[in-house]
Simulated scan of single mutants.
Amino acid sequence: MDQGYSFLKNGIERYGIRLRFVEIKDSEFILSLRNDERLGKFISKTSNRLSDQEQWISDYKKRELKGEEFYFIVEDSQGERYGVTRLSDLKKGIPFELGSWLFSRESPPGMAIKADIIAKEVGFDTLGFNVCKFNVRRDNKSVLNYHLRYEPLIVEETDIDIYFNLSKENFNKGKQKFLKFL
């Protein structure tokens, strides 16, 4: 972690939750989220083999060390894992990408939104990006409606996905609305 991102190594605690880097020991938890039929409805399919997930995380850890990508486990104050979120495409001069936002059915109310806010704060405020890009499946109405409240720019549409760019300014305006209700 020689890129100056060592401050993230110990995790980020805000709004009563904690984001910490994914470790290989989290493979089974991540696999349980990704392969849950209901939760996995709007995400890309993944292998159900634990060894494949462990290898993916091992490869990811190399990208993390280079500061190319940050994949977080989202926990409560007792260390109970509830979800994941990821920042990728961390190259200066282009929008960072937000994705892999997935939470268990037992996740406390508001935790997924708090984690999304923290991840965006890391991208905008900590890493210094001005634009975040992400995509949402058209049929994932609740997530689509959530993201539209930030007033992102639609940059592309397919039959399956809508691709967005969200400015730092619009994020900060939208964030204040959400934090009032959390």
Rank of each mutant, 00 (worst) to 15 (best):
M1K: 09
D2M: 12
D2K: 14
S6P: 10
F7D: 13
F7P: 11
I12F: 13
E13A: 07
E13T: 12
R18Q: 03
R18T: 01
L19D: 08
L19Q: 09
R20Q: 11
R20D: 12
F21I: 08
E23Q: 11
I24Y: 10
I24H: 06
D26T: 08
S27A: 07
E28W: 11
F29A: 00
I30E: 05
I30L: 09
S32I: 05
S32V: 05
R34A: 11
E37D: 14
R38K: 15
L39H: 13
L39S: 11
G40F: 15
K41M: 15
F42P: 09
F42M: 15
F42Y: 15
I43T: 15
K45I: 03
T46N: 03
S47D: 01
R49H: 07
S51G: 13
S51R: 14
S51E: 12
D52A: 10
Q53V: 08
E54L: 09
W56D: 04
S58L: 07
Y60G: 02
K61G: 04
K61A: 05
R63T: 05
R63A: 07
E64W: 11
L65M: 13
L65K: 13
L65A: 12
L65V: 09
E68P: 01
F70G: 01
I73F: 08
E75L: 10
S77M: 13
Q78C: 07
G79V: 02
E80Y: 04
R81K: 10
R81F: 04
Y82P: 04
G83C: 12
V84A: 15
T85F: 15
R86A: 11
L87I: 01
S88V: 07
S88P: 00
S88M: 10
D89K: 12
L90K: 03
G93W: 10
G93S: 01
I94F: 15
L98F: 15
G99K: 09
G99N: 07
G99D: 13
S100L: 15
S100E: 15
F103I: 13
P108E: 11
P109Q: 09
P109A: 10
G110D: 02
M111W: 12
M111P: 09
K114V: 02
K114W: 06
A115H: 09
D116G: 13
D116N: 09
D116T: 10
A119T: 06
K120L: 05
V122P: 06
G123V: 04
G123K: 01
F124A: 01
D125R: 03
G128T: 01
V131I: 00
V131G: 00
C132A: 08
K133V: 02
F134W: 15
N135R: 12
V136H: 06
R137P: 09
R138V: 01
R138Y: 05
D139V: 04
N140M: 13
K141D: 09
V143M: 15
L148V: 03
R149P: 02
R149W: 05
R149K: 08
Y150H: 12
P152T: 03
P152R: 05
P152A: 03
P152Q: 04
V155L: 13
V155Y: 14
E156C: 14
E156P: 09
E156Y: 14
E157I: 08
T158N: 10
T158P: 07
F164D: 03
N165F: 14
S167F: 01
K168Q: 05
K168W: 02
F171T: 02
N172C: 00
K173T: 02
G174Y: 00
G174F: 01
G174W: 00
K177P: 00
L179K: 01
K180C: 02
L182W: 06
L182T: 00
